[in-house]
């Protein structure tokens, strides 16, 4: 039996949402602030101001797979990631933080922020384990919602970015 391409699938995929249809910067900032207060400390403030990231940056992210598919990516300077890890661990922080400790703690922050972002998205979605390293590439500049903040005066970005390339423009 042969099937006819009705164009239905194409039409459905044409309606694929981009992140800016689903959330705004204020939501991301609010999610991040809540995570910071809980994980990093009650007195810790995120100031919504842009800053120049240093050359040596580290990113942590989780992937969200569902009606919207992409990543929630935190990027900051390596030294700031270390300070964040120390703040997260508080008195449980070892005297010398190994790279593994930093990756683990910074990854957990992405996990918590990513979980809250996922909760704000429509429909059931799956969350990956956190990853740390070089941020995934932005596949579609139109499918990015990014917040620039300062933590203890140091720049940090939170980018919620789609994993799929833009759809071809129909003529």
């Amino acid at each position: 039996m042969t099937s006819t391409d009705t164009g239905q699938r194409r039409r459905l995929s044409d309606s694929r949402p981009v992140i800016t249809d689903l959330m705004d910067e204020a939501t991301i900032l609010s999610v991040a602030e809540e995570a910071w207060i809980s994980l990093v400390g009650e007195e810790e403030v995120l100031v919504p101001l842009p800053g120049d990231l240093p050359g040596d940056v580290l990113s942590s992210w989780v992937d969200v797979v569902g009606p919207w598919t992409g990543s929630v990516v935190l990027t900051t300077g390596r030294a700031t990631a270390e300070a964040l890890s120390r703040a997260l661990l508080r008195e449980a922080a070892p005297e010398v933080l190994e790279l593994e400790d930093i990756e683990d703690a910074f990854g957990e922050i992405a996990n918590v922020v990513g979980g809250s972002v996922k909760a704000a998205l429509p429909g059931p979605s799956a969350l990956s384990l956190p990853q740390v390293g070089h941020a995934p590439l932005v596949r579609n500049p139109g499918d990015v919602c990014r917040v620039d903040v300062l933590w203890r005066g140091e720049p940090l970005t939170i980018s919620v970015q789609g994993a799929l390339p833009p759809l071809p423009v129909s003529h």
Partner: peptide
């Protein structure tokens, strides 16, 4: 928890 950081926090 697979995160050592989170294990430390909850343990604390």
């Amino acid at each position: 928890d697979d995160s050592r950081a989170m294990r430390r926090i909850v343990t604390s």
